[in-house]
Design a protein around this nucleic acid. Structure first.
Lengths: 345, 345
DNA sequence: ATCACAACTGGGAGCGCTCCCACGCAACCG
DNA sequence: CGGTTGCGTGGGAGCGCTCCCAGTTGTGAT
């Protein structure tokens, strides 16, 4: 009948019980102190804290998780395919933000790469139950069912980016429209007259937003967007290259291009070089992402920077709010983007 | 007196107990089936597995961790400072490897960024106790005490890279010496006569190894390494730029350079351009890391590729062995590197 | 048929914690 | 002055699992 009440945890580490004994109080009181309950007198609290310090006590996560029915862990889910594409600012930026935000919460970050649809399904099952308190989803595709699945299971979720303008799942995105506008305004402001754009895969919401930003900026400058100046890439270098050649064929006189990704800008640059155009002399170039490629390109590439770290932080804050209050504090957050000017424009 | 034996877990999910009831066996038996114990008859095993499937039972991690005194989680520790430098192939490659290796073990991956020495200390404390079963350390510096600290605490550790040739902590490294040799041999094989090198910070073991590889290859070709052809960078672009100018001043006639990192190669390229040298016409260039920069540089950069994914996998395997058998199966593993030939050489 | 032994199996105890009920006590009410 | 309130506290019960010790059964040898 549970009378052991031993002097130490099985791995030699102190337990709640010992802290209580040392402080001359009950287990409940120590637990209250640890969890910051206000229902403890200051005197008692001090004594307990001293005992904790003396013993070097660290709460046992698993025990706590089991008793409290929470895990103190959130998962960051990354589709495997994407991890390859992860331009460094993206991946590490998000992680840094999440990690920063988690730093003083003692919530753990679980990293989960998902490779196959089968694994995706397994994850949903796995995440349900009390395996994680919440899930952060990154680079979700248009028709990915996971966000809704998790939501329906009652698991707090926050995604990065959104699948459409009507995204129902809580999310944090960056201002793709605004960023594109910034880029195009900048180009026009530098005296460029014929500004073209190379879009990303238009089945991705972000790509559509960037196109929209381009169009708005053109209109704001008093022109009507010209279909001939819009070529679609697919976010890849090769796509950028092909689109650029197309553009140059249609409008040899163009003098600026806004690319919806840095990678496409690299492809575009190659095409421009091949056709004897100088950058930025003949044609000004602007990218999107501000990846390390932009910085080291020759000439260095003007690009739209997304606040990766800020998105990571915001996602985490949102998720924690969702976990805590039963409901996120906003349906969707859009963070501003920023234009980083370099030599290409 | 524990007589509840309820029909369901508190969050509505089935428990071991229910599986046992449904299968008409005791808890112990179900536990044995789940943990793959051989001491169960085939018939019973089948029945239990059916019950598990019927109920969609998933073991409760925390309960299991508490009872078994292990956590089924390993931590990947990354110094924050580095996460910024993380060339994408590095970070995501390691993570992908680790994650792949973990895929069928149901061990979780905890990602921990460490920012300050204070956090480092906290982590050591935290990792002790039964918070994680083992630790993967990445980009450890020469005088980082963490590996030894953890080792002394009896926590299984595997690091990526080593701090010196006498590294005592289990580790997985890539063949820096061999990679450098490959690069230099390639250069010599292409008819280059005066091959210089730009080294990384020589207080890092990897940098010293790459230099050593360079020297060995030079000797193997029948020459004596010439101090004038060795300039030290610090792994940065700026460092590469400065080193290249120095080299060009000392030996205007050099016709090849092996850079200990791609970033330095970019700096070197700038210097070469500034001084009117063409690549690879006048000077051939080889980098190290095979980052995305190498691929997209103009001209694309020949570079030494490290098996990032393989290292991640190997580290994980080693750690798991260490956790399982009380002792890693090797003191240190060195994986081969590979030369990726591109336009710059 | 008897015994020894192995192969399986059931379930008590307990992991370290949180939850919550009940208890003491002091301040406060009419 | 008895009766409330409420704060601060102790500790039983129990989270869902594993461990391990007793059974219980089946097998082969005698």
């Amino acid at each position: 009948m549970a009378v052991s009440r031993r002097g130490t945890g099985r791995d030699g580490r102190p337990t709640l019980e010992q802290v209580a004994a040392r402080a001359g109080v009950g287990r409940g009181t120590v637990s209250r102190v640890i969890n910051g309950s206000p229902r403890v007198s200051d005197r008692t609290r001090a004594v307990v804290q001293q005992a904790i310090a003396d013993l070097g006590y660290v709460p046992h996560r698993a025990a706590r998780a089991l008793a409290a029915n929470r895990s103190d862990a959130i998962a960051l889910v990354v589709p495997e395919v994407e991890s390859r594409l992860f331009a460094e600012p993206y991946f590490s930026g998000i992680i840094r933000g999440v990690s920063l935000e988690l730093a003083d919460t003692d919530i753990q970050l679980l990293l989960t790469l998902i490779r196959t649809p089968k694994e995706r399904a397994r994850f949903a099952q796995y995440a349900s139950g009390n395996r994680v308190d919440g899930v952060l989803l990154v680079s979700v595709h248009k028709d990915d069912p996971l966000p809704d699945q998790l939501s329906e299971l009652g698991i707090p979720v926050v995604m990065n980016g959104r699948r459409s303008a009507e995204e129902m799942v809580p999310h944090v995105d960056c201002d793709n429209v605004g960023g594109a506008q910034l880029a195009v305004e900048h180009l026009i402001g530098r005296g460029r007259r014929t500004v073209a754009t190379i879009t990303g895969s238009l089945d991705m919401y972000a790509a559509r937003c960037r196109l929209e930003g381009y169009q708005e900026a053109i209109r704001a400058a008093g022109h009507e967007p010209d279909e001939e100046l819009i070529a679609s890439g697919d976010f890849s270098e090769e796509g950028g290259h092909a689109a650029m050649r197309q553009l140059l064929t249609r409008r040899p006189s163009l003098d600026a291009v806004f690319c919806a990704s840095d990678l496409m800008a690299i492809g575009a640059r190659r095409a421009l070089r091949e056709l004897g155009r100088t950058i930025p002399g003949d044609v000004a170039l602007v990218g999107f992402d501000d990846s390390s490629l932009a910085q080291h390109m020759d000439p260095s590439l003007t690009s739209v920077r997304q606040p990766m770290e800020g998105m990571g932080r915001a996602m985490t804050r949102t998720l924690l709010a969702e976990i805590g209050n039963e409901g996120p504090d906003h349906p969707g957050l859009v963070l501003p983007t920023e234009l980083v000017r370099r030599a290409s424009s």
